[in-house]
Every structure is written in C-alpha cells, then in structure tokens.
C-alpha cells in the first residue's frame, strides 16, 4: 500500500455520467426534466431554456449496507420496486416522479415519521456544475462528516446549483407489519401522545388516521393503546389528499383556520397540511436571502441552471 493511493470515490468513470455532463454543456440556460410532477414549483422556467434528461438506472444496490447507488433519472417507483424485493425502502415520496426530481423538490413523504425525512436520505451526490464539470460530494457510507455537506444543499435546491446525475441513498428495512387505522372524532394530539412512534397520524377535522408499523405484536400493542383514545378500526389506507401543500409548525397545523385552508388533511406531528386552498407566499428573511443569493452566484455565476426557479419561492 502506498501513500499515492487515491480513493475509488474520487472520480466517476461511468461514460453515461460523462455523456450527461456533455449534454448539460458549459453555456446557455439548461434544466432537467424528470417526471414533471412539481414542474411549476418555485417559479416558471425561463423562456429558451434547453431541457435535458438525467441518466437512469440502478447502478449498485447493496442491501446488506442499506445503501443504493442510482442515477437521477430513475423513477422512484422503479427504485422502490427493486428495494422491496429485498425488504427495503427509502424516504423518497412515491408520486410518479424521478429520484433527482424528488431530491431537488425536497418535499417529504407524508409518512416521514416512519420512513425518515428526505434530506436525511441522500448520502452522496454527483452533479454537473454550471461549468459542465462533474462534482462529487458526500460519501457512500451511512455516516460521514468529511468536508462541507453539499448533499444537504442540493436537496430542495430546485436544480439551481447543479444538475444531479447520480446519488447514493440510504435505504431502510420495511417493517414486518404496516397497518392503517381510522376513527371519527379522536383527538389527534392525544393519539400522538398515546403512541411511541407512529409512522403517520393524519386528521381532517372529523376523522383521524394512523399508520402503525413494526413487529406484529408491537403493532397490536400500539393498536390497543390507540383504542383507548378513540374507536379505531383497521382501514385499507389513508384518505385522498387535497392538492395544495402547506408547510406549518406542528403546533400551527393542529389549529388551522378551516376558512383559509378549505378541505384539508393535516399530517400531525410534522406540520404538513394538504388543503384545497393554496398556502399564501411565505417570506424569507432578507439576511438569509443575501447568503442564499451569494451561494447561487458562487455556484452558477451566469444563472444558467434552471433560470426562473427560486427555492425561496416554493
């Protein structure tokens, strides 16, 4: 072993990724299209923007490490099918989109209490920079504090800092049992207090839904507790959600104004609310905008990556 040994992580030799970097090129406005499930989020794409497609395919799945290396253009559904065959899943939301799209949009699965938050799923990212270079950050292990955490910066960035080519994601085991319960009139706050770690608690003002997961006996025990705070029955799954997403604090979400939100389903303990009315534009602190704008111009001096989109205007 010599000192000159370099890490196998250093440079990607995958020609598929190199081809993507070439597609992105070094000049002119460019954006990646994934499943277009949240295409309008953060502002309309500037006119004349060239659209490219990220490469797809599962490159290296290691169930025994609970990690998977996958190209950004792969659909979340395809990945989850592959993982499910080995009894695993990720924290990415399943709604018809791609891995890269889910990451740059940055929205959690509504069951994030059980599946983990999206931002904690991304371990390593390879992206094409505004200069057309392949940049790597993070690492393949489940624990890593080597250098600045650019994967965190990419999640929710709407592709404004770099265009994701390939990622390594954390997977986690699918519990032995997953079961949904529903009751009318149960106090969602009391439900949250009664349970140790529900995967999801939902409420629409009339009914409360709970997803319990784990070993069968544990789910039975938690279901018994659940029945002390409401007449919960087993149901097939959650209700359907109204189209608009509100981001509130968990406390605010328990006291929402029906007149403002219209029909709604609250994800209790998370602060997410799905409502028939859209959330008014939230403002961002001016001093945070200064830092964010400086980061944007450091990463993309000519503003060519996803022009028109702004993560602060999601």
């Amino acid at each position: 072993m010599t000192d000159s040994t370099t890490s196998p992580l250093l440079v990607s030799t995958d020609p598929v990724l190199a081809e993507f970097a070439e597609d992105v090129g070094t000049s002119e406005p460019v954006a990646v299209a994934g499943g277009r499930t949240r295409w309008e989020l953060g502002g309309a794409l500037g006119p004349g923007t060239r659209i490219v497609t990220a490469p797809s395919g599962i490159v290296d799945y290691q169930p025994e490490e609970m990690t998977v290396r996958v190209r950004a253009g792969t659909s979340v559904a395809e990945l989850h099918d592959e993982l499910a065959a080995k009894g695993q899943r990720t924290g990415l939301p399943e709604r018809g989109g791609t891995i890269g799209g889910a990451l740059v949009v940055g929205e959690n699965d509504y069951r994030c209490l059980g599946r983990g938050r999206l931002r904690e799923t991304l371990l390593q990212v390879r992206y094409v920079s505004a200069e057309g270079l392949m940049v790597n950050s993070g690492g393949p292990t489940v624990k890593n504090v080597s250098g600045f955490d650019l994967p965190r910066l990419m999640v929710g960035s709407l592709g404004t800092l770099g265009l994701i080519a390939e990622v390594i994601l954390r997977t986690n085991p699918i519990p032995a049992v997953s079961r949904w319960f529903c009751a009318a009139g149960a106090d969602p706050g009391a439900v949250g207090e009664a349970l140790l770690a529900p995967s999801a608690v939902l409420a629409d003002g009339q009914q409360t839904w709970v997803e319990l997961e784990g070993h069968g006996a544990d789910v039975d025990e938690q279901a018994a507790r659940l029945r002390t705070v409401g007449s919960f029955e087993v149901v097939d799954g959650p209700p359907s959600f109204p189209p608009h997403r509100w981001s509130l604090t968990p406390g605010q979400a328990l006291e929402v104004d029906d007149a403002m939100l219209g029909d709604h389903v609250t994800i209790v303990g998370v602060g997410l609310v799905f409502a028939s009315e859209p959330q008014p534009r939230r403002s961002i602190e001016p001093n945070i905008a200064i830092v964010s704008d400086r980061i944007k111009s450091n990463f993309d001096p000519t503003g060519r990556l996803n022009p028109g989109r702004n993560p602060a205007q999601k």
């Binding site: 940055g106 929205e107 959690n108 931002r119 504090v145 600045f148 955490d149 650019l150 965190r152 910066l153 999640v155 929710g156 960035s157 800092l161 981001s247 509130l248 604090t249 968990p250 406390g251 605010q252 979400a253 994800i267 998370v270 602060g271 997410l272 939230r282 961002i284 602190e285 001093n287 945070i288 905008a289 200064i290 830092v291 964010s292 980061i295 993560p311 602060a312 205007q313 999601k314």
Partner: peptide, 24 residues
C-alpha cells in the same frame, strides 16, 4: 447579522442552510 436557519415548520423554504451549517 443574526438569522434563523431552518425552522419549526415542516418544510422551511429556500436552500437548506441549516443542513449545511451543521457539521461546518
């Protein structure tokens, strides 16, 4: 300047400056 990074809401808007600050 004094700023609040991240927030108690489900999905704070903007870049995840909280996420990159931790571990910096």
């Amino acid at each position: 300047d004094v700023v609040m990074l991240g927030g108690l809401e489900a999905e704070p808007q903007g870049l995840d400056l909280r996420g990159v600050f931790v571990g910096s």
